[in-house]
Design a protein around this nucleic acid. Structure first.
Lengths: 231, 231
DNA sequence: GTCATCAGGTGTACGCCGTACACCGAATCA
DNA sequence: TGATTCGGTGTACGGCGTACACCTGATGAC
């Protein structure tokens, strides 16, 4: 009997299986629980076995990112550049939304992965064919930054759990020390929650800023803006 | 002799001295080298001694951030909101520029530190007294995000060292796989460097995007924009 | 059919990390 | 004078990434 029922042979390790398991683990238990040891255990294998398929942990993380980024929709056709870019970015956001760890991992990488490069390349293509100059396109890519991939660098993460009592207390304390902040925060809970820490509508904030940028860029395009002195 | 010359007594540990040493260490050797053990050694003390002054490593990092953020200039007086905010943000950028680790640490924190809260509170005050509605101010704070503190979430860090030969080779390889990207990147090296990986003018990119946002916001203010249906 | 090769999983070990806990000397104060 | 407290010490634990030697079963050449 060459085929055994023990599963080890039926389900051999592979880079792909490792990446998919790592992503599932990160989605479910957070990126911190993705250690080589944990991941190996999840796969029913000894930690060092992973190293036959990924060079090291960095490459593992890169691989995870590539899988997620590759799932972003391709650009739509026959749209003006602005709505095409808008839709694609919102699709990227959608793709990353189920992988809350992804943005943090992408940020922490020092070298872009192939899928990210491909995505950026195609995004640049959309801008250029939309009539933006190479010059403007360059600055636009910087301006959009990580927003291209659908996430924004908020200054601090939203509070995990909301204990109404506790946050009401903090709210009052905050109001004393940080009056302006309290004023805005009080408005920020959208009519349905009462505490300072309650959630904003992330999607709205994201689109608000995205449109602010896209509108500004379109205006620059129309006036044939250039960062270099015309000569 | 109560006063000894051995230095241990003359230079007792203190939270402040720990924080300043940690910041210096991070500036010099990178944030990764700021471990409790390393830091203790730097201070000529045993690792556990630190715990008499900071609760744990997270609190240490928070403290480091607070020191840096507290060094941001106070708001200027007698300016229109937009240039006031612009100057303050650029001052924040200046303050963080000598501490390249700071942005990454700030991003990684889940809870804002007092100094960051104070900074944001005063920034909100500038916006409100500049004539922005509470509603608009809220969205503006989200839109500016980490840019408030003078850094932007670039998608990947600049390549550390530039080997002309190697990057010329990569440039050619890139041009095949990512033609649009190569086109923009080729333009991006500002007339003085030749390779793909060469640096952009970070300061220019930062101000470009900042102005894009501020101009857009001023336009919204003028038209009394509101995210809520007027009633 | 036999044997060398080799891909892929294993076991052990090293040097880091953060930090819990018991300890202890010196200063402080009743 | 004796108890208390403050701040630095020493040891130890469980986690991490991963280098390295090892083994084993499948593959391919003869």
């Amino acid at each position: 009997m060459v085929e055994r029922a023990d599963g080890a042979r039926r389900n051999p390790l592979s880079r792909d299986r490792i990446l998919r398991t790592a992503i599932a683990l990160a989605n479910q238990s957070g990126i911190d629980s993705v250690s080589m040891r944990n991941l190996a255990q999840e796969l029913g294998v000894v930690p060092m076995a992973l190293y036959k398929h990924v060079a090291n942990k960095d490459e593992l993380l890169d691989g995870m990112i590539d899988v997620v980024v590759s799932a972003i929709d391709p650009p739509g056709e026959g749209l003006d550049w602005s709505t095409a870019v808008r839709r694609r970015i919102l699709s990227a956001r959608q793709a990353l939304l189920g992988h809350p760890w992804a943005s943090r991992v992408i940020e922490s990488r020092t070298t872009p992965t192939p899928a990210v490069l491909a995505y950026m390349d195609s995004m640049i293509g959309m801008l250029l064919s939309g009539g933006l100059s190479v010059d403007l396109t360059h600055h636009v890519m910087h301006a959009l930054g990580s927003r291209l991939l659908g996430f924004s660098q908020e200054l601090f993460a939203p509070p995990a759990a909301v204990d109404p009592d506790a946050s009401a207390a903090t709210a009052r304390a905050l109001a004393g020390t940080y009056p302006h902040l309290a004023k805005v925060a009080a408005r920020a809970d959208h009519d349905e929650q009462s505490a300072v820490g309650s959630r904003c509508d992330d999607q709205f904030e994201f689109e608000f800023t995205l449109d602010l940028l896209l509108d500004g860029i379109e205006a620059l395009r129309l006036q044939q803006w250039s960062s270099r002195p015309a000569r």
